[in-house]
Design a protein around this nucleic acid. Structure first.
Lengths: 231, 231
DNA sequence: TAAATAAGTTGACTAATATCAATAAAAAAT
DNA sequence: ATTTTTTATTGATATTAGTCAACTTATTTA
């Protein structure tokens, strides 16, 4: 069943992408004419790795996981995306294939905008182009550091880092709902789900966190940071 | 001591960056007026991670390693760069800091071009801007796959992949000079130097390669590919 | 609500990989 | 050519992390 659009026009929407502030009224209208919305239930795939990438996708509400499908069915969660995040990946400018998958974690309302439209606007609007370059650069930078983190830190450090990421970047709170399963937490930190369980238990024993399968409370942020940094 | 410029003018130089083909004569002249050359001996640092990034750097000759300095002095070699590779990293568009280091492996002649000039040209020359976006995208894509490779493959797979990378991408030959030490080969594949030695030995025992510390010959490319893919 | 399914937990075991120490070989410096 | 320094190699051992199996607890479905 088709759902109503949640957003009536890009003109009044603040959920999409900061870079749209660089567009003229006409350009914004053009974007608005080339977009459509869709909603996704938890677990549903929004972007499938390897499929043709003709759209830029933004979440208007909800949370999704960005992940790569690796070897023998093993996934690597790269990021959790909410509002204001451009989802498309470098593939759009190389081989027109999405290089990662995106799946809804909560109920998601998403906006699809033809990437061709963005590309057209970039040729005449350098500020918009730079906004895109900056966006790409930020993501690339995060990838560089992720690479070092995942290859050089040990499990405790990686898990501590993930918990701090939730607390600092996603919820801005010491207590938060844990929307990822232990399996997914493992896919995010490159470890087996059993190892996640064990180390969560250790962190609880040491009174650094309080955790249930669906919630986390950080008790000793300081110690957690030290674990995260020492790897 | 200052060295003579090896290249008299960008106009006739094919060693720098494919994307310069999108520049007008005037733009190329501007680039030429804002560049300088320097030469480096093996081991010398060309770019230092964390330092201010005001230049795009290209190698006119020689080979360099691009690497991140991680935790407790441990490095991760991201790439080997020769001619025609833009060296600057995503930092130039985010925080004006290089996010990786680059060091000469062989004798290197390098050309430094103010990134500000590139940025200026991008505002008026969309083809050049797209060339840059494409370059960034290609590199980002490689990083995505590197992330999966390094996290999901086991040592044999990672080392086999590195050897194939040398053979296919760097030398286009079955036999080649190994310019990296065992230590560096480990930094490239995220393993201890001792493990590199051991697995090289195994690959020799199985008649898949022939190796000395300074040379490699691939005997059974097929088997090596299988090892590389099965991880 | 009961049954079925999925997710979380635990312990025992195995595999992968790093570390350390000793030595050998190669390369660089004198 | 000899010494010094760096790099490579090897074996023994320790650490880290994954796998498997059993079981418990949630969650979903009928």
């Amino acid at each position: 069943m088709f759902s109503e659009n949640v957003i009536s026009s890009c003109e009044f929407c603040s959920k999409c992408w900061g870079n749209l502030k660089n567009l003229s009224a006409d350009e914004l209208k053009m974007v608005n004419n080339n977009r459509y919305e869709a909603s996704f239930k938890p677990g549903e795939i929004i972007i499938k790795q390897g499929s043709p990438s003709s759209n830029a996708i933004f979440l208007l509400s909800g949370l999704a996981k960005v992940y790569m499908e690796g070897y023998s069915g093993r996934n690597l969660i790269l990021d959790l995306a909410g509002q204001s995040t451009l989802l498309a990946g470098p593939g759009v400018n190389v081989n027109s294939r999405y290089c990662y998958s995106v799946a809804a974690i909560t109920q998601v309302q998403a906006c699809f905008i033809s990437f061709e439209v963005f590309r057209k606007i970039m040729t005449v609007n350098p500020d918009f182009a730079f906004g895109f370059i900056e966006d790409m650069s930020n993501k690339a930078l995060k990838m560089y550091f992720k690479l070092v983190n995942l290859t050089q830190k040990k499990m405790h450090g990686r898990l501590a880092e993930a918990l701090l990421y939730f607390s600092n970047n996603l919820y801005s709170a010491d207590s938060f709902e844990m929307l990822l399963s232990r399996q997914e937490l493992g896919e995010m930190t490159n470890m087996a789900k059993e190892s996640v369980v064990r180390i969560m238990g250790e962190l609880e024993d040491e009174k650094i966190i309080e955790a249930t399968p669906r919630s986390v409370k950080i008790l000793d942020r300081n110690k957690l940071s030290i674990i995260s940094e020492k790897g």
